[in-house]
């Protein structure tokens, strides 16, 4: 068996200056633009009325009490627990105490919920539009060139995607056109964005999805009944096992210094 002939293609060095470099620069700049567009598009949180804020914060207060209970002495924890549980069960913190037990309104008719959906749509748009634009731009400008050889072999299934516009049937899959360089930059530029924009940027899809999960968003959505959440939290507080952290601290200290 003869060694398969290694295909070589002699390419103009100008391909680097006129295709590779422009695509890379455009990708980096789009990432930066997307980051700043996302920062600008983020609508400021809407001002809420005092009872609503009290309703949210008192629920958070119960959770914090549960999370940090072990730094409290048993007596002070009991006092707090008794107060919070009774207040939760009476519905003291509810925004509209008369509305207890009534069914919730349809979330689609609630303007606050619509705002959240709009924010998500905006994020998706800011991601989708540049990608489609750039892919179209690359297809329109740079199709039909073989620009580089990948250093690793691929299966022939990739041929139609990576060699689109190159009309040679028997060319090795490793020779790829400009569209594949676009895909490589799409996935590989995240570290570059990290170094340019700091770690919390929204330049790429992955980090952008992380940013949408801002803490406390699902805590008290408009579709949930606050009264039920309060009763739930009261129950959690009731069944919680409290252990004081300073219990037996003398023994621990002595053990630490004697060893």
């Amino acid at each position: 068996m003869a060694q398969p002939i290694v295909q070589t293609i002699h390419r103009d060095p100008a391909l680097f200056w006129w295709i590779l470099l422009p695509i890379t620069v455009v990708m980096v700049l789009t990432g930066i633009l997307r980051h700043y567009a996302m920062t600008l598009l983020q609508s400021a949180p809407k001002k809420q009325a005092l009872p609503q804020i009290r309703q949210q914060r008192s629920l958070v207060r119960g959770m914090n009490l549960r999370a940090n209970a072990n730094v409290l002495t048993p007596s002070s924890f009991q006092a707090r627990k008794a107060y919070m549980v009774s207040a939760y069960q009476e519905g003291k913190f509810l925004a509209d105490p008369e509305g207890r037990g009534k069914p919730r309104p349809n979330p689609m008719s609630d303007p606050a919920a619509m705002e959240g959906i709009m924010g998500m749509m905006k994020g998706n748009m800011a991601m989708m539009v540049p990608q489609t634009l750039i892919m179209g731009w690359i297809n329109a400008f740079f199709s039909g060139f073989v620009i580089m050889k990948l250093p690793f072999p691929l299966t022939p299934q990739f041929k139609s995607m990576l060699q689109s516009g190159v009309g040679t049937r028997d060319l090795d899959v490793r020779w790829v056109s400009s569209l594949s360089w676009y895909f490589l930059t799409l996935f590989g530029l995240q570290p570059v964005y990290n170094f340019i924009l700091g770690s919390n940027n929204s330049a790429n899809q992955v980090t952008q999805q992380m940013g949408q999960m801002n803490p406390g968003a699902g805590l008290m959505g408009p579709e949930q009944d606050p009264d039920k959440l309060f009763l739930n939290e009261a129950e959690n507080l009731e069944v919680m096992e409290h252990r004081w952290i300073l219990e037996g601290v003398e023994d621990r200290l002595l053990a630490k210094f004697s060893s």
Binding site: L20, M148, K149, L150, P151, G188, Q190
Partner: peptide, 20 residues
């Protein structure tokens, strides 16, 4: 594995510039 994509990017670029 998150570093792998950056590796493949620069690997391809410099392989393309130097060798192929």
């Amino acid at each position: 594995f998150s570093g792998l994509s950056g590796f493949v990017l620069t690997w391809t670029l410099f392989y393309g510039l130097v060798r192929a």
